[in-house]
């Protein structure tokens, strides 16, 4: 099932994400997803997230699919050229994966193989364009595909709390022009910025899912503030996390904060995308508290 069908029906689409293991046993990931994420619409499977080498996104997607979940294949342009990416997309379609998220990808220098060659033959925009081309029955070089053409729900990301909103909107527009069907956002901790962004992004007429991270600790938030592009956890939230250490450690404060952000932003977006970062077990409580 393509998640675009749900957006088209006006449904509020909830997704989360999991990372494949650095190894060949995927049971733990599947079990966690089954226990905590089976109630939601779909689950992103990351593609060597943060440039750290792991099992591929596609095989992990299949493991989730076999367990009854709907996976979203994340595809980055860091490790594969246009031939490998198209080939992967055809394979995904053959295996019944029809939801994808197209990303440029972090630089190889950010990860655990910093000496690796960064490919970036395509980028998020040209990858979306490539997918659209495949859907029309020809490859990027214009050669016809044999038989039925693939069809995907094509997603991309946008960073609504970035310091250069105008540049982000310009990039978002290029993604829409290239064929993007829906957007997931970078984690939002400043609802007022998100709402302002959505007022400008409305013009594109594409569904946008609010990105949510459950804040685990003051240290984690400070790390994000210093290192993660487009993420800023405001001081009052840091105070809230600092106030009751036990409550924060138990995840109660984080869930409260995240639920509040979702409630505040919900009228302005078409779904929510939860990046639990190991706290998958808190997702059901979060959704309940947020009234979804």
């Amino acid at each position: 099932m393509r998640i675009t069908e749900l957006f088209d029906n006006g449904e509020f689409v909830v997704t989360a994400e999991v990372g494949p293991p650095k190894g060949i046993c995927v049971d733990h990931v599947v079990e966690e997803a089954k226990s905590y994420l089976s109630g939601i619409t779909a689950v992103n499977v990351t593609d060597n997230q943060s440039s750290v080498m792991r099992m591929g996104s596609l095989p992990a997607c299949i493991a989730l699919k076999n367990a009854g979940l709907t996976p979203i294949l994340q595809l980055t342009c860091r490790d594969r050229n246009r031939i490998a990416l198209q080939s992967e997309l055809l394979g995904a379609a053959m295996l019944g994966i029809d939801n994808i998220l197209c990303l440029t990808g972090d630089h190889t220098k950010m990860g655990d193989h910093p000496g690796a060659k960064p490919v970036f033959d395509l980028d998020s925009v040209s990858l979306l364009h490539t997918v659209k081309q495949l859907e029309s029955g020809v490859d990027l070089a214009g050669n016809p595909l044999v038989g039925e053409a693939p069809k995907f729900a094509k997603g991309a990301v946008v960073s609504p709390c970035s310091d250069s909103i105008d540049a982000q909107l310009a990039k978002m527009e290029r993604k829409v022009m290239a064929g993007c069907d829906y957007f997931q956002t970078q984690a939002v901790f400043e609802p007022e910025k998100f709402i302002k962004f959505m007022e400008a992004a409305k013009q594109f007429g594409k569904p946008v899912q609010l990105g949510v991270i459950i804040p685990k600790s003051v240290g984690m938030c400070k790390f994000m503030n210093n290192n993660v592009a487009g993420v800023h956890v405001p001081d009052d939230m840091l105070e809230e996390l600092r106030a009751d250490k036990e409550k924060t450690k138990a995840g109660i404060t984080g869930v409260e904060i995240a639920a509040r952000i979702i409630k505040e932003c919900k009228p302005y977006c078409q779904g929510v995308h939860i990046m639990a970062l190991g706290w998958e077990s808190k997702v059901p409580a979060l959704l309940e508290k947020a009234g979804i």
Partner: peptide, 19 residues
């Protein structure tokens, strides 16, 4: 640093490159 030709990636922080 990624030689992108279709616009910026999401990696810039305070106008500086992620790399």
């Amino acid at each position: 640093s990624k030689s992108l030709i279709n616009g910026q990636c999401g990696g810039a922080k305070n106008g500086k490159c992620e790399v």
